[in-house]
């Protein structure tokens, strides 16, 4: 079993944190990972910065631009992560857009991921059909799990299709939005969370987009297996830097 699957089999309400590699400073990547693990985070998503992040709101876009300006590259990220498994044991996912992966070479990218101990990938603009036709074998060969997204607009038929193509978890986008744009969950989201729960899918679900405090974390995890925080964490980093990490995580977990 992959670390993601093990974690999900043991933990029913996991907290996952997204951060952009190379932000706030170029060499912060490993220290952020270590601190997140120490603070009790269960899983991390390392954002590979991209110049044109379509599915992201201003917070993640700005952090990506900053990271690129700092000099972050795909090569450098793998160098930084070379020895990370000596000190970090929680599941690690790389989240990014498909073009940088394509330029690196999908096979080469997957090989490097396996070498440094990455467990899965989230590539929002790599569609299901393309993945299955061209890349699923490569992912499998390197022990990588590919995570697919669903949204409130995704039809049940397609959710079932995605469920059968998934092997880690399903990333539930909380609302029709880009990252970082929701303030609180209303009945619309709660109905959506319940509707998905009632489908009894094979894969666990983890909610992302719009989770920014303990309240939204609780709401998001009531009917699911966990939640992902990205923009709110990056906002905190931009203000307090790395020394704000444990306090931030405590504030999410306080209840």
């Amino acid at each position: 079993m992959n670390r993601i699957q093990i974690e999900l089999s043991e933990n029913k309400k996991l907290l996952s944190i997204y951060f952009t590699a190379g932000y706030p400073k170029l060499d912060d990547t490993v220290e952020i990972l270590q601190q997140l693990e120490k603070s009790g985070v269960n899983m991390v998503e390392i954002g590979l910065p991209f110049s044109d992040p379509l599915a992201d709101g201003p917070t993640i876009q700005e952090s990506s631009q900053e990271a690129l300006k700092n000099g972050m590259t795909t090569d450098l990220l793998f160098q930084q992560l070379k020895d990370v498994r000596a000190t970090v044991s929680i599941p690690m996912i790389i989240m990014g857009y498909f073009n940088p992966v394509l330029q690196f070479g999908v096979e080469n990218f997957c090989k490097k991921c396996a070498e440094v101990g990455i467990d899965g990938l989230i590539l929002p603009d790599l569609p299901l059909a393309e993945f299955e036709e061209h890349y699923s074998e490569i992912f499998k060969k390197h022990g990588l799990i590919n995570i697919f997204l669903i949204t409130p607009q995704t039809s049940e038929e397609r959710i079932r299709q995605i469920d059968s193509a998934s092997e880690g978890f399903i990333y539930m986008v909380s609302s029709a939005s880009v990252t970082g744009s929701s303030d609180g969950f209303g009945t619309v989201q709660e109905n959506y969370f319940e509707r998905i729960a009632s489908l009894s899918l094979t894969n666990p679900q983890i909610v992302g987009f719009g989770i920014n405090n303990s309240e939204t974390f609780l709401q998001a995890t009531k009917n699911t297996n966990g939640a992902i925080i990205g923009s709110a964490f990056i906002k905190m980093l931009s203000v307090k830097g790395l020394c704000g990490i444990s306090e931030f995580i405590d504030s999410i977990r306080k209840v």
């Binding site: 929002p124 569609p127 393309e130 997204l149 949204t151 607009q153 397609r158 986008v173 029709a176």
Partner: peptide, 9 residues
């Protein structure tokens, strides 16, 4: 069509 799932529908 290399689009995020949000645009799929």
């Amino acid at each position: 069509a290399y689009i995020p799932e949000m645009l799929y529908p």
